[in-house]
Design a protein around this nucleic acid. Structure first.
Lengths: 270, 270
DNA sequence: CGAACCATTGACGGGGCTCAAATTGTGTGG
DNA sequence: CCACACAATTTGAGCCCCGTCAATGGTTCG
Protein backbone atom coordinates (compact mmCIF):
# COMPACT_ATOMS: atom_id res chain seq x y z
CA UNK A 1 0.00 0.00 0.00
CA UNK A 2 2.94 2.34 0.44
CA UNK A 3 0.78 4.41 2.73
CA UNK A 4 3.68 6.36 4.22
CA UNK A 5 5.20 7.27 0.90
CA UNK A 6 4.74 10.91 -0.01
CA UNK A 7 3.48 11.69 -3.45
CA UNK A 8 5.05 15.12 -3.53
CA UNK A 9 8.31 15.58 -5.41
CA UNK A 10 10.08 18.45 -3.73
CA UNK A 11 12.77 18.54 -6.36
CA UNK A 12 11.55 18.99 -9.86
CA UNK A 13 9.28 21.26 -11.79
CA UNK A 14 6.76 20.82 -14.46
CA UNK A 15 7.75 21.54 -17.99
CA UNK A 16 6.39 20.13 -21.16
CA UNK A 17 4.24 17.92 -19.01
CA UNK A 18 7.17 16.20 -17.33
CA UNK A 19 9.32 16.71 -14.28
CA UNK A 20 12.75 18.25 -14.61
CA UNK A 21 15.45 19.15 -12.13
CA UNK A 22 18.34 21.56 -12.41
CA UNK A 23 21.87 20.79 -11.29
CA UNK A 24 21.48 22.33 -7.87
CA UNK A 25 18.51 20.12 -7.12
CA UNK A 26 20.44 17.05 -8.22
CA UNK A 27 23.32 18.03 -5.94
CA UNK A 28 20.94 18.47 -3.03
CA UNK A 29 19.54 15.04 -3.73
CA UNK A 30 23.04 13.53 -3.67
CA UNK A 31 23.95 15.36 -0.45
CA UNK A 32 26.66 17.30 -2.23
CA UNK A 33 27.55 20.97 -1.92
CA UNK A 34 25.61 22.85 -4.57
CA UNK A 35 27.57 23.63 -7.67
CA UNK A 36 27.58 27.25 -8.68
CA UNK A 37 27.23 26.72 -12.37
CA UNK A 38 26.18 29.48 -14.65
CA UNK A 39 23.99 27.38 -16.86
CA UNK A 40 20.92 27.63 -14.68
CA UNK A 41 18.99 26.40 -17.63
CA UNK A 42 20.62 22.97 -17.44
CA UNK A 43 17.78 20.60 -16.71
CA UNK A 44 17.59 16.87 -16.19
CA UNK A 45 14.54 14.91 -17.04
CA UNK A 46 12.71 12.64 -14.62
CA UNK A 47 11.23 9.25 -15.39
CA UNK A 48 8.69 7.28 -13.43
CA UNK A 49 8.72 3.55 -12.89
CA UNK A 50 5.97 1.41 -11.46
CA UNK A 51 6.45 -1.34 -8.90
CA UNK A 52 8.18 -4.31 -10.45
CA UNK A 53 9.49 -2.48 -13.49
CA UNK A 54 13.14 -2.70 -14.42
CA UNK A 55 15.15 0.49 -14.74
CA UNK A 56 17.99 -1.26 -16.50
CA UNK A 57 19.00 -4.86 -17.05
CA UNK A 58 22.28 -6.70 -17.19
CA UNK A 59 24.01 -6.34 -20.52
CA UNK A 60 21.90 -3.41 -21.64
CA UNK A 61 23.96 -0.66 -23.32
CA UNK A 62 24.98 1.99 -20.83
CA UNK A 63 24.33 5.66 -21.33
CA UNK A 64 22.54 6.87 -18.22
CA UNK A 65 23.10 7.33 -14.55
CA UNK A 66 20.06 7.54 -12.31
CA UNK A 67 19.44 9.42 -9.09
CA UNK A 68 16.51 8.29 -6.99
CA UNK A 69 14.17 11.15 -6.25
CA UNK A 70 11.47 9.08 -4.59
CA UNK A 71 10.60 5.42 -4.19
CA UNK A 72 12.52 2.26 -3.38
CA UNK A 73 14.47 -0.14 -5.55
CA UNK A 74 16.81 -3.08 -5.46
CA UNK A 75 19.88 -3.72 -7.55
CA UNK A 76 20.76 -7.34 -8.20
CA UNK A 77 23.31 -9.57 -9.80
CA UNK A 78 22.14 -12.73 -11.55
CA UNK A 79 24.41 -15.73 -11.36
CA UNK A 80 24.71 -18.54 -13.86
CA UNK A 81 21.81 -20.46 -12.32
CA UNK A 82 19.43 -17.52 -12.44
CA UNK A 83 19.81 -16.81 -8.74
CA UNK A 84 19.45 -13.25 -7.63
CA UNK A 85 22.04 -11.62 -5.41
CA UNK A 86 20.81 -8.34 -4.00
CA UNK A 87 23.54 -5.70 -3.99
CA UNK A 88 21.74 -2.69 -2.58
CA UNK A 89 18.40 -1.10 -1.88
CA UNK A 90 18.69 2.32 -3.49
CA UNK A 91 16.38 5.02 -2.18
CA UNK A 92 16.10 8.78 -2.28
CA UNK A 93 19.47 10.38 -2.98
CA UNK A 94 21.19 7.22 -4.19
CA UNK A 95 23.02 6.96 -7.49
CA UNK A 96 22.53 3.99 -9.78
CA UNK A 97 24.20 2.77 -12.93
CA UNK A 98 27.84 3.54 -12.17
CA UNK A 99 28.74 -0.10 -12.80
CA UNK A 100 27.81 0.40 -16.43
CA UNK A 101 30.60 2.83 -17.25
CA UNK A 102 33.14 0.07 -17.47
CA UNK A 103 32.28 -2.16 -20.47
CA UNK A 104 29.59 0.28 -21.65
CA UNK A 105 26.92 -2.12 -20.41
CA UNK A 106 25.21 -2.38 -17.05
CA UNK A 107 26.53 -5.26 -14.98
CA UNK A 108 23.61 -5.24 -12.58
CA UNK A 109 19.87 -4.97 -12.76
CA UNK A 110 17.74 -2.33 -11.04
CA UNK A 111 14.16 -3.16 -10.13
CA UNK A 112 11.56 -0.83 -8.63
CA UNK A 113 10.16 -2.10 -5.32
CA UNK A 114 7.63 0.68 -5.29
CA UNK A 115 6.54 3.38 -7.69
CA UNK A 116 9.61 5.49 -8.28
CA UNK A 117 10.65 8.82 -9.64
CA UNK A 118 14.20 8.93 -11.00
CA UNK A 119 16.33 11.73 -12.36
CA UNK A 120 18.05 10.85 -15.61
CA UNK A 121 21.69 11.85 -15.91
CA UNK A 122 23.01 11.26 -19.42
CA UNK A 123 26.60 10.22 -18.77
CA UNK A 124 28.02 11.84 -21.90
CA UNK A 125 26.37 15.12 -21.05
CA UNK A 126 27.79 14.96 -17.55
CA UNK A 127 31.37 14.33 -18.57
CA UNK A 128 31.26 16.92 -21.32
CA UNK A 129 29.98 19.45 -18.86
CA UNK A 130 32.47 18.36 -16.24
CA UNK A 131 35.29 19.27 -18.57
CA UNK A 132 34.41 22.93 -18.28
CA UNK A 133 33.16 22.88 -14.71
CA UNK A 134 35.71 21.56 -12.26
CA UNK A 135 33.23 21.27 -9.46
CA UNK A 136 30.98 18.99 -11.45
CA UNK A 137 33.89 16.79 -12.32
CA UNK A 138 34.95 16.56 -8.70
CA UNK A 139 31.40 15.69 -7.82
CA UNK A 140 31.47 12.81 -10.26
CA UNK A 141 34.66 11.37 -8.87
CA UNK A 142 33.44 11.95 -5.34
CA UNK A 143 30.17 10.13 -5.85
CA UNK A 144 31.84 7.17 -7.51
CA UNK A 145 34.38 6.95 -4.73
CA UNK A 146 31.61 7.11 -2.16
CA UNK A 147 29.91 4.15 -3.81
CA UNK A 148 33.15 2.25 -3.62
CA UNK A 149 33.62 3.01 0.07
CA UNK A 150 30.08 1.91 0.71
CA UNK A 151 30.70 -1.41 -0.98
CA UNK A 152 33.90 -1.90 0.97
CA UNK A 153 31.93 -1.49 4.17
CA UNK A 154 29.49 -4.07 2.86
CA UNK A 155 32.30 -6.52 2.20
CA UNK A 156 33.58 -5.94 5.70
CA UNK A 157 30.17 -6.68 7.12
CA UNK A 158 29.62 -9.85 5.11
CA UNK A 159 33.07 -11.08 6.01
CA UNK A 160 33.03 -10.43 9.71
CA UNK A 161 29.60 -10.18 11.29
CA UNK A 162 27.14 -12.76 12.59
CA UNK A 163 23.59 -13.05 11.33
CA UNK A 164 22.24 -11.12 14.30
CA UNK A 165 24.72 -8.32 13.84
CA UNK A 166 23.98 -8.07 10.13
CA UNK A 167 20.26 -7.77 10.66
CA UNK A 168 20.78 -5.27 13.47
CA UNK A 169 23.00 -3.12 11.29
CA UNK A 170 20.57 -3.36 8.44
CA UNK A 171 17.80 -2.01 10.64
CA UNK A 172 19.94 0.80 12.00
CA UNK A 173 21.02 1.82 8.52
CA UNK A 174 17.45 1.80 7.30
CA UNK A 175 16.38 3.83 10.30
CA UNK A 176 19.04 6.43 9.55
CA UNK A 177 18.07 6.63 5.91
CA UNK A 178 14.40 7.10 6.73
CA UNK A 179 15.33 9.77 9.22
CA UNK A 180 17.39 11.58 6.57
CA UNK A 181 14.44 11.50 4.23
CA UNK A 182 12.19 13.09 6.78
CA UNK A 183 10.31 9.98 7.76
CA UNK A 184 10.14 8.55 11.24
CA UNK A 185 13.29 6.71 12.25
CA UNK A 186 11.31 4.77 14.84
CA UNK A 187 8.55 3.31 12.76
CA UNK A 188 8.72 2.39 9.11
CA UNK A 189 7.73 -0.17 6.54
CA UNK A 190 10.16 -2.48 4.85
CA UNK A 191 9.80 -2.26 1.14
CA UNK A 192 11.50 -5.58 0.47
CA UNK A 193 10.72 -9.21 1.25
CA UNK A 194 12.55 -11.33 3.81
CA UNK A 195 13.99 -13.19 0.88
CA UNK A 196 15.51 -10.00 -0.55
CA UNK A 197 16.84 -8.94 2.83
CA UNK A 198 18.39 -12.35 3.25
CA UNK A 199 20.03 -12.20 -0.14
CA UNK A 200 21.37 -8.75 0.63
CA UNK A 201 22.80 -9.87 3.98
CA UNK A 202 24.04 -13.26 2.88
CA UNK A 203 21.43 -15.13 4.93
CA UNK A 204 18.35 -17.21 4.30
CA UNK A 205 14.90 -15.73 4.60
CA UNK A 206 14.18 -18.00 7.56
CA UNK A 207 17.18 -16.69 9.46
CA UNK A 208 16.10 -13.13 8.79
CA UNK A 209 12.59 -13.87 9.99
CA UNK A 210 13.81 -15.67 13.09
CA UNK A 211 16.26 -12.94 13.96
CA UNK A 212 13.58 -10.28 13.65
CA UNK A 213 11.31 -12.34 15.86
CA UNK A 214 14.11 -12.70 18.39
CA UNK A 215 14.76 -8.95 18.40
CA UNK A 216 11.05 -8.49 18.90
CA UNK A 217 10.91 -10.87 21.86
CA UNK A 218 13.70 -9.16 23.73
CA UNK A 219 12.22 -5.76 23.12
CA UNK A 220 14.72 -4.29 20.69
CA UNK A 221 12.10 -3.81 18.01
CA UNK A 222 8.48 -4.50 17.24
CA UNK A 223 7.65 -6.50 14.17
CA UNK A 224 4.40 -6.88 12.33
CA UNK A 225 4.89 -8.18 8.86
CA UNK A 226 6.71 -5.35 7.07
CA UNK A 227 6.13 -2.76 9.75
CA UNK A 228 9.17 -2.30 11.95
CA UNK A 229 9.29 -0.27 15.14
CA UNK A 230 12.70 0.54 16.53
CA UNK A 231 12.65 0.32 20.32
CA UNK A 232 16.30 0.32 21.34
CA UNK A 233 18.59 1.82 18.72
CA UNK A 234 21.65 1.75 20.94
CA UNK A 235 21.31 -1.95 21.59
CA UNK A 236 20.97 -2.58 17.86
CA UNK A 237 23.99 -0.43 17.14
CA UNK A 238 26.21 -2.14 19.67
CA UNK A 239 25.02 -5.61 18.75
CA UNK A 240 28.03 -7.25 17.23
CA UNK A 241 29.75 -10.51 17.19
CA UNK A 242 32.77 -11.82 15.51
CA UNK A 243 32.34 -15.33 14.15
CA UNK A 244 35.66 -15.18 12.36
CA UNK A 245 37.21 -13.87 15.52
CA UNK A 246 40.77 -14.30 16.63
CA UNK A 247 41.05 -12.14 13.56
CA UNK A 248 42.44 -9.55 15.90
CA UNK A 249 45.44 -7.76 14.56
CA UNK A 250 48.53 -7.85 16.64
CA UNK A 251 48.70 -4.10 16.71
CA UNK A 252 46.30 -3.39 19.54
CA UNK A 253 47.39 0.22 19.65
CA UNK A 254 45.34 0.81 16.57
CA UNK A 255 41.68 0.91 17.47
CA UNK A 256 41.00 4.60 17.33
CA UNK A 257 39.23 4.26 20.61
CA UNK A 258 39.08 0.93 22.34
CA UNK A 259 36.01 2.82 23.45
CA UNK A 260 34.04 -0.24 22.59
CA UNK A 261 32.45 -0.66 25.97
CA UNK A 262 30.88 -3.87 27.12
CA UNK A 263 28.72 -5.18 24.33
CA UNK A 264 25.23 -6.51 24.50
CA UNK A 265 25.78 -10.10 25.53
CA UNK A 266 24.04 -11.27 22.37
CA UNK A 267 20.85 -13.11 22.14
CA UNK A 268 22.08 -16.54 22.98
CA UNK A 269 22.65 -15.53 26.57
CA UNK A 270 19.04 -14.58 27.12
CA UNK B 1 62.39 -15.64 -0.22
CA UNK B 2 60.33 -14.30 -3.11
CA UNK B 3 62.34 -16.55 -5.36
CA UNK B 4 59.92 -16.41 -8.27
CA UNK B 5 59.57 -12.68 -8.23
CA UNK B 6 61.33 -10.93 -11.08
CA UNK B 7 63.51 -8.01 -10.26
CA UNK B 8 63.14 -6.43 -13.65
CA UNK B 9 60.72 -3.58 -14.08
CA UNK B 10 59.65 -3.68 -17.70
CA UNK B 11 57.78 -0.43 -17.42
CA UNK B 12 59.87 2.48 -16.28
CA UNK B 13 63.14 4.15 -17.09
CA UNK B 14 65.91 5.64 -15.11
CA UNK B 15 65.97 9.35 -14.67
CA UNK B 16 67.50 11.32 -11.90
CA UNK B 17 68.27 8.02 -10.23
CA UNK B 18 64.65 6.98 -10.00
CA UNK B 19 62.15 5.08 -12.06
CA UNK B 20 59.59 6.93 -14.10
CA UNK B 21 56.83 5.82 -16.45
CA UNK B 22 54.98 7.69 -19.17
CA UNK B 23 51.25 7.59 -19.68
CA UNK B 24 51.36 4.82 -22.25
CA UNK B 25 53.19 2.55 -19.87
CA UNK B 26 50.66 3.27 -17.14
CA UNK B 27 47.84 2.42 -19.51
CA UNK B 28 49.51 -0.84 -20.44
CA UNK B 29 49.83 -1.64 -16.78
CA UNK B 30 46.12 -1.03 -16.23
CA UNK B 31 45.17 -3.13 -19.29
CA UNK B 32 43.70 -0.09 -20.98
CA UNK B 33 43.98 0.99 -24.60
CA UNK B 34 46.96 3.30 -24.88
CA UNK B 35 46.11 6.97 -24.88
CA UNK B 36 47.46 8.95 -27.77
CA UNK B 37 48.41 12.00 -25.85
CA UNK B 38 50.80 14.53 -27.21
CA UNK B 39 52.60 15.18 -23.98
CA UNK B 40 55.06 12.33 -24.34
CA UNK B 41 57.10 14.03 -21.71
CA UNK B 42 54.45 13.38 -19.08
CA UNK B 43 56.16 11.12 -16.58
CA UNK B 44 55.00 9.51 -13.37
CA UNK B 45 57.41 8.73 -10.58
CA UNK B 46 57.80 5.29 -9.03
CA UNK B 47 58.23 4.55 -5.35
CA UNK B 48 59.51 1.40 -3.72
CA UNK B 49 58.13 -0.17 -0.57
CA UNK B 50 59.68 -2.96 1.47
CA UNK B 51 57.77 -5.90 2.86
CA UNK B 52 55.55 -4.81 5.71
CA UNK B 53 55.63 -1.13 4.90
CA UNK B 54 52.39 0.80 4.62
CA UNK B 55 51.65 2.66 1.42
CA UNK B 56 48.86 4.65 3.00
CA UNK B 57 46.89 4.41 6.22
CA UNK B 58 43.30 5.07 7.19
CA UNK B 59 42.57 8.73 7.70
CA UNK B 60 45.70 9.91 5.94
CA UNK B 61 45.09 12.88 3.63
CA UNK B 62 44.45 11.73 0.09
CA UNK B 63 46.33 13.04 -2.88
CA UNK B 64 47.70 10.02 -4.73
CA UNK B 65 46.49 7.02 -6.62
CA UNK B 66 48.86 4.09 -6.97
CA UNK B 67 49.32 1.53 -9.71
CA UNK B 68 51.20 -1.64 -8.80
CA UNK B 69 54.11 -2.24 -11.13
CA UNK B 70 55.54 -5.19 -9.24
CA UNK B 71 55.07 -6.87 -5.91
CA UNK B 72 52.11 -7.91 -3.79
CA UNK B 73 50.03 -6.02 -1.27
CA UNK B 74 46.90 -6.23 0.80
CA UNK B 75 44.32 -3.54 1.46
CA UNK B 76 42.49 -3.73 4.76
CA UNK B 77 39.78 -2.12 6.79
CA UNK B 78 40.24 -1.84 10.55
CA UNK B 79 37.14 -2.15 12.69
CA UNK B 80 36.57 -0.62 16.11
CA UNK B 81 38.27 -3.53 17.88
CA UNK B 82 41.40 -3.31 15.81
CA UNK B 83 40.46 -6.32 13.73
CA UNK B 84 41.69 -6.40 10.18
CA UNK B 85 39.33 -7.09 7.31
CA UNK B 86 41.19 -7.79 4.10
CA UNK B 87 39.51 -6.15 1.10
CA UNK B 88 41.84 -7.12 -1.71
CA UNK B 89 45.27 -8.38 -2.66
CA UNK B 90 46.48 -5.83 -5.21
CA UNK B 91 49.18 -6.96 -7.60
CA UNK B 92 50.65 -5.87 -10.90
CA UNK B 93 48.24 -3.69 -12.83
CA UNK B 94 45.91 -2.96 -9.93
CA UNK B 95 44.89 0.51 -8.90
CA UNK B 96 44.89 1.57 -5.26
CA UNK B 97 43.66 4.59 -3.38
CA UNK B 98 40.38 5.29 -5.17
CA UNK B 99 38.53 5.08 -1.86
CA UNK B 100 40.37 8.22 -0.76
CA UNK B 101 38.75 10.57 -3.27
CA UNK B 102 35.59 10.75 -1.29
CA UNK B 103 36.30 12.54 2.04
CA UNK B 104 39.81 13.46 0.90
CA UNK B 105 41.24 10.79 3.19
CA UNK B 106 41.98 7.13 2.57
CA UNK B 107 39.38 4.86 4.09
CA UNK B 108 41.53 1.77 3.85
CA UNK B 109 45.10 0.79 4.54
CA UNK B 110 47.52 -0.67 1.99
CA UNK B 111 50.35 -2.89 3.22
CA UNK B 112 53.17 -4.39 1.16
CA UNK B 113 53.29 -8.19 1.39
CA UNK B 114 56.54 -8.22 -0.56
CA UNK B 115 58.94 -5.62 -1.85
CA UNK B 116 56.93 -3.48 -4.21
CA UNK B 117 57.35 -0.95 -6.96
CA UNK B 118 54.41 1.43 -7.36
CA UNK B 119 53.68 4.16 -9.87
CA UNK B 120 52.52 7.38 -8.26
CA UNK B 121 49.56 9.09 -9.89
CA UNK B 122 48.93 12.51 -8.35
CA UNK B 123 45.15 12.79 -8.47
CA UNK B 124 45.07 16.53 -9.07
CA UNK B 125 47.46 16.20 -11.97
CA UNK B 126 45.31 13.46 -13.44
CA UNK B 127 42.04 15.34 -13.28
CA UNK B 128 43.59 18.53 -14.58
CA UNK B 129 45.02 16.64 -17.49
CA UNK B 130 41.79 14.77 -18.03
CA UNK B 131 40.01 18.05 -18.63
CA UNK B 132 41.95 18.56 -21.83
CA UNK B 133 42.25 14.92 -22.85
CA UNK B 134 38.93 13.17 -23.14
CA UNK B 135 40.52 9.75 -23.37
CA UNK B 136 42.29 10.15 -20.08
CA UNK B 137 39.11 11.22 -18.41
CA UNK B 138 37.25 8.24 -19.80
CA UNK B 139 40.04 6.06 -18.56
CA UNK B 140 39.61 7.43 -15.05
CA UNK B 141 35.89 6.79 -14.99
CA UNK B 142 36.40 3.40 -16.53
CA UNK B 143 38.94 2.27 -13.98
CA UNK B 144 36.83 3.44 -11.08
CA UNK B 145 33.79 1.71 -12.48
CA UNK B 146 35.81 -1.46 -12.96
CA UNK B 147 36.79 -1.40 -9.30
CA UNK B 148 33.16 -1.07 -8.39
CA UNK B 149 32.15 -4.02 -10.54
CA UNK B 150 34.91 -6.07 -8.99
CA UNK B 151 33.66 -5.30 -5.51
CA UNK B 152 30.13 -6.17 -6.52
CA UNK B 153 31.33 -9.57 -7.62
CA UNK B 154 33.06 -9.93 -4.27
CA UNK B 155 29.83 -9.13 -2.44
CA UNK B 156 28.07 -11.71 -4.55
CA UNK B 157 30.65 -14.31 -3.64
CA UNK B 158 30.57 -13.61 0.08
CA UNK B 159 26.80 -13.65 0.08
CA UNK B 160 26.21 -16.81 -1.88
CA UNK B 161 29.11 -19.27 -1.93
CA UNK B 162 30.24 -22.00 0.46
CA UNK B 163 33.68 -22.10 2.00
CA UNK B 164 34.91 -24.64 -0.53
CA UNK B 165 33.63 -22.60 -3.44
CA UNK B 166 35.24 -19.44 -2.12
CA UNK B 167 38.63 -21.02 -1.73
CA UNK B 168 38.34 -22.65 -5.15
CA UNK B 169 37.48 -19.34 -6.77
CA UNK B 170 40.27 -17.63 -4.94
CA UNK B 171 42.76 -20.11 -6.34
CA UNK B 172 41.41 -19.84 -9.87
CA UNK B 173 41.52 -16.05 -9.73
CA UNK B 174 45.07 -16.11 -8.46
CA UNK B 175 46.05 -18.57 -11.16
CA UNK B 176 44.60 -16.28 -13.82
CA UNK B 177 46.35 -13.27 -12.42
CA UNK B 178 49.70 -15.02 -12.32
CA UNK B 179 49.15 -16.19 -15.85
CA UNK B 180 48.43 -12.62 -16.97
CA UNK B 181 51.63 -11.49 -15.36
CA UNK B 182 53.65 -14.05 -17.24
CA UNK B 183 54.16 -16.43 -14.39
CA UNK B 184 53.09 -20.05 -14.36
CA UNK B 185 49.38 -20.46 -13.77
CA UNK B 186 50.00 -24.00 -12.55
CA UNK B 187 52.53 -23.41 -9.81
CA UNK B 188 52.88 -20.34 -7.68
CA UNK B 189 53.53 -19.09 -4.20
CA UNK B 190 50.92 -17.47 -2.05
CA UNK B 191 52.14 -14.15 -0.77
CA UNK B 192 49.65 -14.00 2.07
CA UNK B 193 49.02 -16.02 5.22
CA UNK B 194 46.09 -18.35 5.78
CA UNK B 195 44.82 -15.79 8.21
CA UNK B 196 44.78 -13.10 5.55
CA UNK B 197 43.13 -15.39 3.02
CA UNK B 198 40.50 -16.25 5.60
CA UNK B 199 39.80 -12.62 6.34
CA UNK B 200 39.52 -11.92 2.63
CA UNK B 201 37.08 -14.79 2.08
CA UNK B 202 35.09 -14.38 5.27
CA UNK B 203 36.44 -17.62 6.76
CA UNK B 204 38.73 -18.66 9.59
CA UNK B 205 42.31 -19.60 8.90
CA UNK B 206 41.57 -23.16 10.02
CA UNK B 207 38.81 -23.52 7.46
CA UNK B 208 41.12 -22.23 4.75
CA UNK B 209 43.84 -24.65 5.78
CA UNK B 210 41.46 -27.60 5.95
CA UNK B 211 39.90 -26.77 2.60
CA UNK B 212 43.29 -26.59 0.94
CA UNK B 213 44.20 -29.92 2.50
CA UNK B 214 40.95 -31.41 1.23
CA UNK B 215 41.58 -30.11 -2.30
CA UNK B 216 45.02 -31.61 -2.05
CA UNK B 217 43.72 -35.03 -1.00
CA UNK B 218 41.29 -35.31 -3.89
CA UNK B 219 43.92 -34.22 -6.36
CA UNK B 220 42.62 -30.82 -7.34
CA UNK B 221 45.77 -29.09 -6.19
CA UNK B 222 49.06 -29.76 -4.46
CA UNK B 223 49.86 -27.85 -1.31
CA UNK B 224 53.14 -27.34 0.42
CA UNK B 225 53.03 -24.43 2.75
CA UNK B 226 52.67 -21.42 0.50
CA UNK B 227 53.45 -23.27 -2.69
CA UNK B 228 50.29 -24.14 -4.62
CA UNK B 229 50.15 -26.38 -7.65
CA UNK B 230 46.98 -26.31 -9.70
CA UNK B 231 46.10 -29.81 -10.90
CA UNK B 232 42.54 -29.55 -12.10
CA UNK B 233 41.49 -26.03 -13.00
CA UNK B 234 38.16 -27.06 -14.45
CA UNK B 235 37.12 -28.84 -11.30
CA UNK B 236 38.07 -25.78 -9.28
CA UNK B 237 36.14 -23.51 -11.62
CA UNK B 238 32.99 -25.58 -11.54
CA UNK B 239 33.14 -26.16 -7.81
CA UNK B 240 30.19 -24.25 -6.46
CA UNK B 241 27.52 -24.60 -3.90
CA UNK B 242 24.71 -22.48 -2.83
CA UNK B 243 24.24 -22.44 0.93
CA UNK B 244 21.68 -19.66 0.71
CA UNK B 245 19.97 -21.59 -2.04
CA UNK B 246 16.31 -21.56 -2.86
CA UNK B 247 17.42 -18.08 -3.74
CA UNK B 248 16.42 -18.96 -7.23
CA UNK B 249 14.58 -16.20 -8.99
CA UNK B 250 11.17 -17.03 -10.32
CA UNK B 251 12.15 -15.95 -13.79
CA UNK B 252 13.98 -19.03 -15.00
CA UNK B 253 14.08 -17.72 -18.54
CA UNK B 254 16.88 -15.45 -17.45
CA UNK B 255 20.09 -17.43 -17.05
CA UNK B 256 21.98 -16.42 -20.16
CA UNK B 257 22.69 -20.07 -20.76
CA UNK B 258 21.39 -22.69 -18.40
CA UNK B 259 24.54 -24.16 -19.83
CA UNK B 260 25.58 -24.93 -16.31
CA UNK B 261 26.17 -28.59 -16.82
CA UNK B 262 26.36 -31.08 -14.01
CA UNK B 263 28.62 -29.71 -11.33
CA UNK B 264 31.33 -31.42 -9.41
CA UNK B 265 29.41 -33.18 -6.66
CA UNK B 266 31.36 -31.24 -4.03
CA UNK B 267 33.77 -32.62 -1.57
CA UNK B 268 31.34 -33.96 0.94
CA UNK B 269 30.30 -36.72 -1.40
CA UNK B 270 33.78 -38.14 -1.68
C1' DC C 1 -12.62 -16.16 -4.26
C1' DG C 2 -8.87 -18.77 -5.34
C1' DA C 3 -3.87 -18.90 -6.41
C1' DA C 4 0.34 -17.13 -5.70
C1' DC C 5 3.31 -15.14 -2.73
C1' DC C 6 4.97 -13.97 1.83
C1' DA C 7 5.95 -14.66 6.73
C1' DT C 8 6.39 -17.45 10.76
C1' DT C 9 7.75 -21.37 13.35
C1' DG C 10 9.50 -26.03 14.39
C1' DA C 11 12.64 -29.96 13.84
C1' DC C 12 16.90 -31.46 12.33
C1' DG C 13 21.57 -31.77 10.59
C1' DG C 14 25.83 -30.22 9.02
C1' DG C 15 29.18 -26.71 7.73
C1' DG C 16 32.25 -24.02 9.69
C1' DC C 17 33.78 -21.69 14.07
C1' DT C 18 36.12 -22.47 18.62
C1' DC C 19 39.54 -24.32 21.45
C1' DA C 20 43.71 -26.87 21.71
C1' DA C 21 48.09 -28.99 20.73
C1' DA C 22 51.82 -30.46 17.85
C1' DT C 23 54.86 -29.39 14.02
C1' DT C 24 57.34 -26.63 11.10
C1' DG C 25 58.94 -22.36 9.24
C1' DT C 26 60.95 -17.65 10.03
C1' DG C 27 63.57 -13.91 11.82
C1' DT C 28 66.81 -12.02 15.05
C1' DG C 29 70.58 -11.66 18.25
C1' DG C 30 74.58 -13.63 20.07
C1' DC D 1 76.12 -19.69 11.70
C1' DC D 2 73.40 -21.36 15.25
C1' DA D 3 69.93 -21.00 18.84
C1' DC D 4 65.95 -19.40 20.44
C1' DA D 5 61.52 -17.13 20.33
C1' DC D 6 57.75 -16.40 17.73
C1' DA D 7 54.70 -16.84 13.84
C1' DA D 8 52.42 -19.79 10.63
C1' DT D 9 50.34 -24.12 9.45
C1' DT D 10 48.16 -28.36 10.23
C1' DT D 11 45.06 -31.44 12.44
C1' DG D 12 41.75 -33.08 15.84
C1' DA D 13 37.51 -32.87 18.81
C1' DG D 14 33.36 -30.66 19.93
C1' DC D 15 29.55 -27.86 19.36
C1' DC D 16 26.68 -24.17 17.86
C1' DC D 17 24.93 -21.18 14.41
C1' DC D 18 22.41 -21.16 10.61
C1' DG D 19 20.90 -23.58 6.43
C1' DT D 20 17.50 -27.10 5.01
C1' DC D 21 13.02 -29.15 4.83
C1' DA D 22 8.34 -28.77 6.03
C1' DA D 23 3.80 -27.20 7.55
C1' DT D 24 0.70 -23.45 8.66
C1' DG D 25 -1.61 -19.09 8.32
C1' DG D 26 -1.80 -14.46 6.45
C1' DT D 27 -1.70 -11.20 2.59
C1' DT D 28 -2.29 -9.60 -2.07
C1' DC D 29 -4.18 -9.31 -6.39
C1' DG D 30 -6.33 -10.78 -10.62
Amino acid sequence: MLSTQPVSHEAGRQRQGRLWSNLKEVCDLLHLPPISINSEELLFQHVQFKTGQRVHTIGQPFDMLYVVNSGFLKTVLIDEFGNEQVLAFPMKGDLMGVDGIHNKTYSSEAVALSDCDLVLLPFKKLTTLGRTHVELENMMYGVMSRELVREQAMIGMLGALSAEARVARFLVTLSDRFSQMGYSSKLFNLRMTRHEIGSYLGLTLETVSRTLSAFNEIGLISVDQRTIGIKDVDALKSLRRLPPSRTRSKLPARAKAAAAEAQVPLLATL
